[in-house]
Nucleic acid binder design. Structure first.
Lengths: 227, 227
DNA sequence: CGCAGTGGACTAGCCCGTCCAGTCCATTTA
DNA sequence: TAAATGGACTGGACGGGCTAGTCCACTGCG
């Protein structure tokens, strides 16, 4: 019976358990291969090669292809989510409020435009798009993926935008009866066409097209909610 | 040298060429199996069985799995597109204009709501959704699918809506500076969340949720474009 | 010494695409 | 009318290729 509570180690040898470095290498290779090939065409041998690891090690760490897949998707999903928060300081600071007013300056239209620009950037990031396509392709046959996407990606952004609209509304700058709904609407307007194109892998939405989209979305909201 | 222009026939035997009935049966089975299983997991043997046809016949008609797949997607795409037009008499009559004013009565809000309701119905049809998921999953590895979706599905609907907005605008009922853009915006508002849920295969958007979506979308446009 | 990791062989299974002998049948020919 | 004809279709077998997952003898290191 073991009495210490530290990491299990035997009488001699390195700290027990699979090596985290190997695990990480396998995960990264798995992400790359699954995003590139999809679940079925991705072969465990290729993943092992690409991770510079023996196939047996892959099975030691993850058990089978299915579980490796789930873990890889989760890994990439966290990477993308981290990009949401970290890469967008004005959305949520570390404490969730520090930069909460970053978009409160200027007029409403300018703030919405800046916000829309940012939303498109994070949503149309190439790896995020590839992950979306992969999950859509496989979620029907791998129900464990469901939680990975059920919340919807832009949740946090919508929430922040709703707060911004609420503040501008209480300042009398706008007249927004339901800020949460309005935020959803703005994000839908901004995101729709870009998502469509990223899903079908057609041309990835030129900068001026994107600009036209979020500018007219901002115009629409400002017109509708002028006080 | 043949002199008649009828279907090729040899000295004896039934009219030459593969039997269209078989071809159709194969196509329908292929659609069913591909939508159900995806490209890789769908096996030609299963499709042949389900079409009550021998595997050799499948290969006689379509050459290989790839071409069968393309043909199946095209078949289903046409079926969905037909549903767009035929099933929605108020969008385009047989001559393209007969019912063009079907939504011109009533006030703008009511017309937009009715229109949004219809758009959601055709876009979230279960088979249409399954086709969308399949194409998204495979378009990267089967470039021949590109044309099948490049135009975007709701094109026709958007065009009609733009015309309706234009008419109401010239009647002074609304003030829509750019009807085409406004139509795109309305469709984006209506469609976004439902598409999202149908892609990820989560719960298929209850009726009251759908109603809330297109009602508030109609409200937004009416507010923004009041004369 | 003990254990994570290696590399390669191996099993078992699936699937595409081909092949072939034989059936069916509408039409032509005798 | 009866036989011949040739093409579409059948059903089952099979080759070749790829893959998931297992096994094992071996290595290197703390």
């Amino acid at each position: 019976m073991r009495t210490d509570s530290g990491p299990r180690r035997s009488a001699a040898g390195r700290p027990a358990g699979p090596q985290p470095a190997k695990r990480q290498a396998i995960l990264e290779a798995a992400v790359a291969v699954f995003l590139r090939e999809g679940y079925n065409r991705a072969s465990v041998d290729v993943i092992a090669d690409e991770a510079r690891v023996s196939k047996q090690t892959v099975y030691n760490h993850f058990g089978d292809k299915e579980r490796l897949f789930i873990a890889a998707v989760e890994e990439e999903r966290e990477r993308v989510a981290a990009g949401f928060a970290a890469g967008s300081p004005y959305v949520l600071g570390p404490d969730g409020a520090a930069n909460a007013e970053a978009y409160d300056g200027g007029d409403a239209r300018a703030a919405l435009i800046a916000f829309g620009h940012r939303v498109l950037a994070v949503l149309l990031d190439e790896r995020a798009s590839a992950l979306r396509r992969l999950v859509i392709a496989e979620v029907a046959r791998h129900p464990s993926l469901r939680p990975a996407c059920a919340e919807g990606e832009p949740q946090q952004l919508v929430k922040y935008l709703a707060e911004m609209l609420g503040r501008r509304s209480s300042r009398g700058e706008l007249s927004v009866p339901d800020p949460a709904a309005a935020a959803h609407q703005f994000v839908a307007l901004v995101v729709q066409q870009g998502l469509y194109q990223s899903m079908y892998g057609t041309r990835p939405l030129a900068d001026d097209e994107a600009a036209a989209i979020y500018e007219s979305a901002a115009d629409l909201l400002v017109r509708a909610y002028r006080p």
